[in-house]
Design a protein around this nucleic acid. Structure first.
Length: 827
DNA sequence: GCAGCAAGGTTACC
DNA sequence: ACGGGTAACCTTGCTGC
C-alpha cells in the first residue's frame, strides 16, 4: 500500500503550531513554508508521555515490575474520551541534579497526563510524577520534535482526503505526514515572512457593544502590496484604498476574503488580543457569520488568561503591544506604550490626527480623514512588525517556542522555556510548576535583602569615572553555583552564604541552571562580537535576546511562579553581589580614588590626578582578583557629574544624579526630568538647568533660566499642555483608600462619559479656586475644563522642588533668589 | 486647627 | 499569575496637642 502513496521531500520552515487528537493519538500540526515560499502543513505524531520518579531506595526488579504493571492498568474516562497507558519504560534520569530511577509513562492523550498523574501518585513506592503539566506543543518540542523557525529537510507523504477524519479536506494546499526530518545548518533558507498589519475603528469602546465602522489592512512581502480600508460608512471615491460595502456583515466578509487572498504568515495588530480581534469576532457573531480567518476555515480561538490570546489557525496573530510590553518596555524611552509613542520611538513615524469628538456629526471630510487615520494605524503596525521581526525570529529560535507564544510570554516564561528545552543536555526531568497553595507559601516568605546603594555626598564633581559589573547577578549565579538543584541542606563539600537569619549551603558540583546560564552569557558575548563585526538587525536581535535572557535569570529564581524557584539562591545572589561591590569599593578607595556613588552593580569615583591609561590598568588589576566569570568594565569617563540632597534631610539622595561626557552627552537618572508624573514645565526647566550646570560647571545660566520661567509662570504665559500632570490609574477607582488628585480626575473623566480603565494615564491640572482650598485634589481640573492654572501650586509644588536641590549644591537658597535678595551662605 | 508623621501611591534605578 | 529589592517624593489621613 505504502509505495502507492505520494512521497515527497522538501525544505521547510515551521511557523505555526497546533495539535489535534486522532483516535488514540496526539498529532502536532505545523504550518509553514517550503524553501520556495509555498504553503505546506506537516503533521507529526507525538507520543504523549510523562515521568514517574521512584522513591530513593534499593529496588528489586520484581517490585518495579509490579509498579509498572499497576501503572499500565490505569485508565481515565471523562466526558470527552477514554484514555489509557500504552507502555512504560524504565530509565536512569536526573532530577534536580541527582540520579534517579524513573519510569516514562506513555499514554494515549497528553491532555489527560495530569489525571493519570493523580492516580499514579496513589501507588506506594512512587515519590512524584513530573512533566504532566507541560503544554503539549512545548513537550513535543522538548521530546525532539520539529523546532520553530529552524530549517528542515522533510520527508513526508501526502495526507489523503479520507485520512485522519478528513482533516486535509478544508485545506487548499498539501498536508504531509512526517516520516523523516533533518535539521539543516544555520539559516540555509532565507525566510522573510509575509506580514499584514490590521486595525479596526468602532463606534463604542466596549467589546461588541457598537459597530465596526472600518477595518484597515496593510502590508505584504513588500510595502503597499495590500493597502485597503473596508467600510460600510460614507465612502469617498477619491480615496482609492477605500472599499465600500452595504453592511457591517459584507465588510467583515470582504476583510476575511482579502486576508485569505493575501495569505500572510503574520497578521499583526496593536492591542489586538484585547480589542481588534475579539471585537471582530463579536461583530461577526452578531451578524451571524463566521470569522473564518484560519487556514482550516476555523475562527480565532481565544485562550483564557488575564488578557485573552487570539489564535488563528496557521496564521500567526501577533499583538505587537504585548510583545513590546513584556520584552522591550523597560528599555524604551516612551512614557506610554501607545501606538503613537512607540512608533515615534522605534520608527520615527506618527499616527495621524483625528478628532474623535466629530464621531457624532461626521461629514464627508471627516470620514475621509478617519479612513486615512485608520489606514495609517495599519501602516504603523506593519512597519513595527517588520522592525521587530528579527527579534521575534531570534527569540523563537533561541527559546524554541512558537512565534505565537514568544510574542505573548513574560520574561520569566522565556527563561523557563529556554531551560525546559535545554534540560535534555543534562538528562534532567523537568520540575513542576507550583500550585496555588505553593505560590501562597512562597509569597508569604516575604522579602529578602536586596542591593547595596551608596549614600552619595551632594556636589558638583569634575572627571567622574563609572565602572560596572557586566550582567552582575547572572555572573554571581554562575560563579557561585547558586540554584535550586545546587542548594544543599548538607555542609559537606559545599560553599556557604550568610543571609540575614540563616546560613545556606550550595554544592560545589556545577548545577544545570548555572551551567545553562553560563552558556547564555557566553553566547551573549559571542554574538555581541558578531554584531560588532557585522552590524545588522538579525545579529543585533540575537545578541539582545541572550542579553535579555541573562538579565532575567536572577528575577526568575526569585519569582514565586517559577518551576526552579529558589529563594535561598536568589537571596544569596543578592548577598554575594553586595559583598562583591563593597569589596570593590574598598579596593578603589585603596587605589587612591574617592568613591562618589554606587548602586547595585556600578561604582562612580573621581579620576583625581590619574590618567586614563592608569585607570584602565587599575581596572585590569581589579578584574584579575574577581572570582569566576565576574567582570568589571569601564562604563565611561565623564567630564562632570552632579549629586543632590534629598528634599527631606541633608543627606545625598540616592538614585538621582546627572553626568556629562567630554562629547557633551548627558545621562540623567532619577530626577523629575525623567519622571512622567511631573508636568512638562518643571521637567523641561530641570533638564535645562542640569544641562547648563553640567556644560558650564557653574550655576549662572541655570539661575537665569529659573527666573525667566518663574516670570512666565506668574505672567500666565505658560501653555496648558505644559502644566498637565499625568498619573497612571493603577487600580479601579473605588479601590483607592486615599483619594488622590488623579483619582478625582479619573472620577471626573468617568462623569464625562469617557471610558476609565485600569492602566490608563489620567491627565489633569491644578487650577485656581474661588475659595481657598486646603487639598490639592480640590483644585483638580481636566484638560478640557475651563479654568486658570494655579500659580502658587505650580511654583511651590512643581517648579521649585524640581530645581531647589540642584541649586542648593552651590549653597544658594533659590527662594531667596527669586525674592530678589541674593545671598550666599557660608559653607 | 494645625504640626508632624505614617500610610498610600506612583515612578524611578539597576 | 505571569521577574526582584531599593529609593525618592508626592498627597492624604490620622493622632495628639
Amino acid at each position: 500500500m505504502r509505495d502507492r502513496k505520494m512521497e515527497k521531500e522538501f525544505e521547510f520552515i515551521p511557523i505555526d503550531y497546533s495539535d489535534f487528537d486522532f483516535k488514540e493519538e496526539n498529532w502536532i500540526k505545523i504550518h509553514g513554508r517550503t524553501k520556495d515560499g509555498k504553503r505546506v502543513c506537516v503533521i507529526d505524531k507525538y507520543e504523549a508521555n510523562f515521568w514517574v520518579i521512584l522513591e530513593n531506595k534499593d529496588w528489586k526488579e520484581k517490585e518495579i515490575e509490579e509498579i509498572r504493571k499497576k501503572i499500565e492498568e490505569i485508565e481515565i474516562e471523562n466526558n470527552v474520551r477514554k484514555s489509557r497507558v500504552l507502555k512504560t519504560e524504565m530509565e536512569k534520569k536526573n532530577f534536580l541534579g541527582k540520579e534517579r530511577k524513573a519510569i516514562r509513562v506513555f499514554i494515549t492523550n497528553q491532555k489527560d497526563a495530569l489525571d493519570f498523574s493523580d492516580k499514579i501518585k496513589e501507588i506506594s513506592g512512587i515519590e512524584k510524577t513530573r512533566e504532566a503539566d507541560i503544554s503539549i506543543i512545548t513537550k513535543y518540542i522538548m521530546d525532539g520534535g520539529v523546532k520553530p523557525l529552524k530549517n528542515y529537510k522533510i520527508e513526508g507523504e501526502i495526507v489523503e482526503k479520507e485520512e485522519f477524519g478528513g482533516i486535509s479536506e478544508v485545506y487548499e494546499f498539501n498536508l504531509y505526514k512526517l516520516n523523516k526530518k533533518e535539521e539543516l545548518a544555520k539559516e540555509e533558507i532565507k525566510f522573510e515572512p509575509k506580514i499584514l498589519g490590521f486595525d479596526i475603528e468602532a463606534s463604542e469602546f466596549e467589546l461588541g457593544k457598537g459597530e465596526i465602522l472600518m477595518i484597515s489592512l496593510y502590508g505584504g512581502k513588500k510595502e503597499n502590496e495590500c493597502k485597503k480600508v473596508f467600510t460600510w460608512k460614507k465612502c469617498d471615491k477619491k480615496q482609492d484604498f477605500v472599499s465600500c460595502f452595504k453592511s457591517e456583515e459584507e465588510m467583515i466578509e470582504a476583510f476575511i476574503k482579502e486576508v485569505k487572498k493575501q495569505d500572510p504568515d503574520i497578521l499583526a495588530g496593536y492591542f489586538s488580543d484585547g480589542f481588534d480581534l475579539p471585537y471582530l469576532k463579536a461583530c461577526a457573531q452578531k451578524n451571524k457569520i463566521k470569522l473564518s480567518l484560519g487556514l482550516d476555515e476555523s475562527q480565532p480561538d481565544f485562550k483564557r488568561g488575564r488578557i485573552s490570546q487570539g489564535k488563528i489557525e496557521g496564521i500567526v496573530h501577533v499583538d505587537l503591544f504585548r510583545f513590546i510590553e513584556t520584552v522591550f518596555s523597560q528599555y524604551m524611552q516612551s512614557e506610554t506604550l501607545s501606538l503613537n509613542e512607540v512608533a515615534g520611538e522605534l520608527l520615527n513615524e506618527r499616527k495621524e490626527d483625528f478628532d474623535f469628538s466629530r464621531l457624532k456629526k461626521m461629514e464627508e471630510d471627516d470620514w475621509k480623514n478617519f479612513f486615512s487615520y485608520n489606514l495609517q494605524d495599519s501602516i504603523l503596525t506593519y512597519n513595527l512588525a517588520k522592525k521587530l521581526w528579527p527579534d521575534m525570529y531570534e527569540f523563537s529560535r533561541i527559546i524554541q517556542e512558537p512565534l505565537f507564544d514568544i510574542t505573548r510570554d513574560s520574561m520569566s516564561m522565556h527563561v523557563e522555556n529556554y531551560l525546559l528545552h535545554n534540560l535534555k543536555n543534562f538528562n534532567e526531568i523537568a520540575e513542576k510548576r507550583p500550585h496555588h497553595d505553593e505560590i501562597g507559601k512562597r509569597k508569604a516568605l516575604g522579602k529578602y535583602e536586596g542591593a547595596f546603594v551608596f549614600q552619595p555626598k551632594p556636589g558638583l564633581y569634575e572627571n567622574v569615572i563609572m565602572f560596572d559589573f557586566t550582567s552582575m547577578y547572572s555572573s554571581v549565579i554562575v560563579s557561585y553555583n547558586l540554584s535550586l538543584s545546587t542548594y544543599s541542606g548538607e555542609k559537606r563539600g559545599t560553599f556557604s552564604v550568610d543571609l540575614e537569619k540563616e546560613k545556606v549551603y550550595f554544592s560545589k558540583e556545577k548545577g544545570f541552571f548555572p551551567l545553562i546560564l553560563e552558556e547564555i552569557i557566553k553566547k551573549r558575548k559571542q554574538y555581541k562580537k558578531e554584531y560588532k563585526n557585522d552590524e545588522n538587525p538579525i545579529t543585533k536581535a540575537r545578541s539582545n535576546a541572550y542579553k535579555l535572557l541573562a538579565n532575567a535569570a536572577y528575577g526568575y529564581q526569585g519569582f514565586f511562579g517559577a518551576r526552579y524557584y529558589c529563594r535561598e539562591a536568589a537571596a544569596s545572589t543578592a548577598a554575594l553581589a553586595r559583598k562583591s561591590i563593597l569589596e570593590t569599593i574598598e579596593k578603589i578607595k585603596k587605589g587612591g580614588f574617592e568613591v562618589i556613588y554606587s548602586d547595585t552593580d556600578s561604582i562612580a569615583f573621581l579620576q583625581e590626578k590619574k590618567n586614563r591609561k592608569e585607570v584602565l590598568e587599575f581596572l585590569e588589576k581589579l578584574n584579575k582578583e574577581l572570582p569566576g566569570i565576574m567582570e568589571l568594565e569601564l562604563e565611561d569617563f565623564y567630564k562632570r557629574g552632579i549629586w543632590v540632597t534629598k528634599r527631606s534631610g541633608e543627606f545625598g539622595a540616592k538614585k538621582k544624579y546627572a553626568l556629562i561626557t567630554e562629547n557633551g552627552k548627558i545621562k540623567i537618572r532619577g530626577f523629575e526630568t525623567v519622571r512622567r508624573d511631573w508636568c512638562q514645565l518643571a521637567r523641561e526647566l530641570q533638564n535645562k538647568v542640569l544641562e547648563a550646570i553640567l556644560k558650564e560647571g557653574n550655576e549662572k545660566r541655570a539661575l537665569e533660566l529659573i527666573k525667566k520661567t518663574i516670570q512666565n509662570l506668574k505672567e500666565r504665559k505658560i501653555d496648558k499642555k505644559e502644566i498637565l500632570i499625568r498619573t497612571q490609574l493603577k487600580k479601579p477607582i473605588n479601590e483607592y483608600l486615599s483619594i488622590t488628585p488623579h483619582v478625582i480626575a479619573a472620577q471626573k473623566l468617568q462623569a464625562q462619559g469617557m471610558p476609565v480603565d485600569v492602566g490608563m494615564l489620567i491627565e489633569y491640572f491644578i487650577a485656581e479656586t474661588r475659595e481657598k482650598k486646603a487639598l490639592v485634589r480640590e483644585k483638580v481640573k481636566l484638560p478640557n475644563e475651563k479654568g486658570e492654572y494655579n500659580i502658587d501650586y505650580y511654583l511651590n509644588n512643581q517648579l521649585l522642588p524640581a530645581v531647589e536641590n540642584i541649586i542648593e549644591v552651590f549653597n544658594i537658597n533659590i527662594k531667596e533668589i527669586i525674592e530678589g535678595t541674593r545671598q550666599k551662605k557660608l559653607f
